[in-house]
């Protein structure tokens, strides 16, 4: 087991290095940098900067050095926990990201919980009661859920919020808690706001998981070992849960970590529409203003967290199911 974890952690390192390079390069790609954008903006406002002033700015931000040196500097500091300076906010990236990152993680976690809590029972029910009215209803909702991009869903919910409740559905906190320190009351307030984005981000994943769960369960229900169990005289309900459902759950739970990239992506987009104080809006603004270190650090962190999440889920799975530990992925 320890060997397995070690192997997986070691495998993670080259991926992380690659991601850091990619994150940094993507931000470097567009012609010009933060200073050019900044100067252009000033010029548009009628203010001209002299050559010296521009050079001084570039030196201040370290933009006069070649790209790879900037990268090496950034990544060395990054590993030590210092993610550099945000040009736009003129503040350390760490402090900007901190709380937003935590909120993103909490939201992703709840979304994951929501997806599985909804999808597994519904999937089983649809399979056991195949072609029942409820099965058709769930299938239909599932199709709609898969077809509606979550940012559109967010818009629609906002619209309903205004039309029906007369209140905007955005944000994660009530006004009185916005700048308040963390307290039990603030956490409670956050949870009260969080269900909506969680439902929105989770809808597509739920719809997809219901389909997989239903299909696998149906597949398993027809297998010979179920007939064996029936021939023992087991009760039908217990039989279904203990055999086909148990087998069908394996691949679903084993891919729990693979859902993370999708969910993190979803939270970024939905956060933009609902104006949530998570990483989404910050990343968007950083990308728009070529805020090099902020944008690169955020892509890097989001990817890293996703990878770690996947790793944890894989390790948990290996711990639960010995077959995977020995490299026999998949069931039956």
């Amino acid at each position: 087991m320890r060997e397995y974890i070690l192997r997986r952690v070691i495998q993670l390192i080259p991926t992380l290095i690659l991601i850091s390079i990619v994150s940094f390069t993507i931000i470097q790609l567009p012609p010009g940098d933060y200073v050019t954008t900044y100067v252009a903006n000033l010029a548009a406002a009628g203010e001209e900067l002299s050559e010296e002033e521009i050079a001084a700015l570039e030196e201040h931000y370290g933009l006069n050095q070649p790209g790879y040196i900037q990268y090496i500097k950034w990544i060395t500091n990054f590993v030590q926990g210092d993610m550099g300076l945000s040009f736009y906010w003129d503040r350390p990236v760490n402090r900007l990201i901190g709380e937003r990152l935590m909120l993103t993680m909490i939201m992703s976690f709840f979304t994951l919980l929501f997806v599985y809590a909804m999808a597994i029972p519904i999937g089983i029910y649809s399979a056991v009661r195949q072609y029942s009215l409820a099965d058709y209803v769930f299938t239909f909702i599932g199709f709609i859920g898969l077809a509606t991009p979550n940012f559109l869903l967010a818009l629609i919910f906002m619209y309903i919020g205004i039309k029906v409740f007369g209140a905007s559905a955005g944000g994660l906190f009530s006004t009185e808690y916005l700048d308040a320190d963390w307290s039990v009351a603030k956490v409670w307030d956050m949870l009260k706001h969080m269900w909506l984005p969680v439902v929105i981000v989770g809808t597509a994943g739920t719809a997809g998981t219901i389909r997989v769960m239903r299909a696998t369960t149906l597949d398993e229900i027809g297998r010979p070992y179920v007939e064996t169990a029936r021939s023992k005289g087991l009760r039908e309900g217990r039989l279904t849960m203990k055999y086909p459902v148990r087998v069908a759950l394996n691949p679903i739970l084993s891919t729990i970590g693979w859902r993370l990239p999708e969910i993190v992506s979803g939270t970024v987009l939905v956060a933009l529409v609902l104006n949530l104080p998570t990483t989404g809006p910050l990343l968007w603004r950083a990308l728009m203003s070529q805020d090099l270190y902020l944008a690169a650090s955020m892509i890097m962190i989001l990817s890293t967290l996703t990878l770690i999440g996947t790793l944890i889920s894989d390790i948990l799975l290996a711990w639960v199911d010995p077959r995977i530990r020995y490299g026999e992925r998949g069931t039956t």
């Binding site: 070992y225 021939s231 023992k232 005289g233 069931t331």
Partner: peptide, 20 residues
Amino acid sequence: RGGEIAMIFQEPRASLSPVH
């Protein structure tokens, strides 16, 4: 069923649960 009349099947491996 199972107590007084028992049954065995054609494909022994598929007739046993893969996860138990």
